[in-house]
Each structure stands twice: as structure tokens, then as C-alpha cells.
Write a protein that binds this DNA or RNA. Structure first.
Length: 271
DNA sequence: CCGGCCACCTGCGGGC
DNA sequence: TGCCCGCAGGTGGCCG
């Protein structure tokens, strides 16, 4: 489900309500996420004040006086802010209750997400340490992509989805950005010019920024922290549009498997 | 180091 | 209707 824009949307929805609040309790109904929710986390969080929230890649980082909570939404996770009815539904795996009455509830049918605790700087954590730059930062440029791409034979779509190269570009936005940039998804990363990478890098920034502004993409079940869908799905030009005409040239959009992921592209506009 | 593949898990839609 | 198959927005780990 969530790529960078969906995680950012979740962060922006939660932070104003939760920053500065103290934790009343953590209730875990199912510890078995991608990695088990650590036992003892309940005791660690009780009474602690949430100092701030950040996003790094697709991880949400919650800062407390003695460490950070590190969470990830996986493929099907969502974090909702509840105030009224607290009856848990199927796949509601944990609740973080705050002193102002707000309840942060995690829902995740596939359980590919996670909730971990780290005492050290989150940037030093083994799941974060190896990650590349944020796509919306100044470190992410066409020159940067071009330099790392030299001699690489992997398909450019896999290259830009590799978190060690750049974070936050998932399957939807990789397809969309490559389409807007006119680059075929299977083109070897090392066989793309600097000029095309400059174009691609700026397009990735634009697509992600537009998706954040639209509140993310809801394909079937993404909901923001208030339980509302994002509407960037209406602006997708190729993703999920196999067999439909390209908006530019009317060729039919194709769906090709690249690196075990569906990849949508226009056979005429992208090369 | 790099590239390719698998696994983790549940739900849903299509085809028969 | 019901069963079986394939597929789904992520990503660490393993293998050659």
C-alpha cells in the first residue's frame, strides 16, 4: 500500500494531534508483524512524552525521551487516530493510547509492517543505516543517479526502486515517473544519459510532491490517519491502466513484469 | 559488489 | 456457489 507519499500523508495527519502528548499505554493484540513487536515495549512507553515525529524513507520515527519508536506500514498497514468507538476490528494489531484521549491504532492484514524500539539514533539502526538519500532532498539529483548508474545492468525501474540508491520510490511512482520521463522500465540503468537522469530526478520529485499534495494514492484500501482516502489515483497515467490508451499518443498501455513487479508503460512514448 | 529470486501474510477477484 | 489460482502498494536475506 504505502509508498513515500502515503507515509508522509500519515505523518502530517498524526503529528499535530500527538506531539507533546504522553503515552497512557500500549496495547498489543498481535506481536507477529514482519519482526515481532518487542516484549517489554509496553513498560518502556508508559508515561513517556512523544517529543516529535519524523519520516525517514517509508519509516515513521516517533521520538521519546529515552529512544525512538520505529514503524513501517509494509504493504497493507495503516495508522489511524481514533477518539470514539475503540472496539478493535480484525487485523487491528496494536493501540497507542495518549493522555489527551487520542488512540493511535495500527491495522495491517498482511502483517508486513513493523514496530520496533531503538535507544540509539534511528539513522544508525540496521534497517535505516544503509538507505540512500531522500528523493525530495537536495542530495538526490540527476548527477547523483547518473554516477551510481555507471556500469550497472539492472533495469532502471529496479534501480530507482532500490532503497540503497534512493528511498521512497515504490512500484506505483516508479512506473509513473518513468512514463513521464519517457524512459522504458527495462532499459539498463547504465545506458541512460546524464540529461535523461536529470529529467528523471526532477520528475520523481514532482510526482512525489504532487502525490503528497493529493493526500497519497488509494488503490483499494489506503486510508489516511483520519480514515479518508487519497485522490492521486485519479492522476495516474499508466499504473493499473493496462490496455487503456496512453494520454499522449493513444498507444495501448502495457503491463510487463520487471523484477517480479507489475510495470506499466507506453510502448511508444517510453524507450 | 551486483543482480536475481524467494519469503513473509491475508484478502480478493476471475475463471471454471 | 465454491474452489483454486494469481495477484497486490515492501523489503531483508540468500545464492551464485
Amino acid at each position: 500500500m504505502p509508498e513515500l507519499p502515503e507515509v508522509e500523508t500519515t505523518l502530517r495527519g498524526l503529528e499535530p494531534h500527538l506531539k507533546g502528548q504522553s503515552v497512557v499505554k500500549l496495547v498489543v493484540r498481535n506481536r507477529r508483524l514482519r519482526w515481532p513487536i518487542p516484549s517489554g515495549l509496553e513498560a518502556k512507553l508508559r508515561g513517556q512524552t512523544l517529543l516529535g515525529m519524523r519520516r525517514r524513507a517509508k519509516y515513521l520515527l516517533l521520538e521519546f525521551p529515552h529512544g525512538h519508536l520505529l514503524s513501517h506500514l509494509g504493504m497493507s498497514g495503516s495508522l489511524r487516530l481514533l477518539t470514539g468507538d475503540l472496539t478493535p476490528q480484525k487485523h487491528d494489531h496494536f493501540d497507542l493510547a495518549f493522555a489527551n484521549g487520542m488512540c493511535l491504532r495500527y491495522h495491517d492484514p498482511r502483517r508486513f509492517g513493523l514496530l520496533l524500539w531503538t535507544k540509539r539514533e534511528p539513522a544508525m539502526h540496521r534497517l535505516i543505516r544503509h538507505l540512500g538519500p531522500e528523493p525530495l532532498s537536495d542530495k538526490f539529483t540527476g548527477e547523483y543517479l547518473y554516477r551510481l548508474a555507471q556500469k550497472r545492468k539492472a533495469a532502471v525501474k529496479n534501480f530507482i526502486m532500490d532503497g540503497r540508491i534512493v528511498v521512497g520510490v515504490g512500484n506505483i511512482y516508479a512506473s509513473e515517473a518513468l512514463h513521464r520521463a519517457g524512459i522504458h522500465p527495462t532499459r539498463p540503468a547504465g545506458r541512460i544519459s546524464l540529461a535523461r537522469y536529470q529529467n528523471l530526478a526532477s520528475i520523481i520529485k514532482i510526482v512525489l510532491a504532487e502525490a503528497i499534495a493529493a493526500g497519497g494514492t488509494t488503490l483499494k484500501d489506503f486510508l489516511n490517519s483520519a480514515g479518508l482516502p487519497g485522490y492521486f489515483a485519479q492522476k495516474l497515467l499508466v499504473y493499473g491502466r493496462e490496455g487503456l490508451p496512453c494520454g499522449t499518443c493513444l498507444s495501448l498501455i502495457r503491463n510487463l513484469t520487471v523484477g517480479q513487479r507489475a510495470s506499466f508503460y507506453c510502448p511508444k512514448c517510453q524507450n
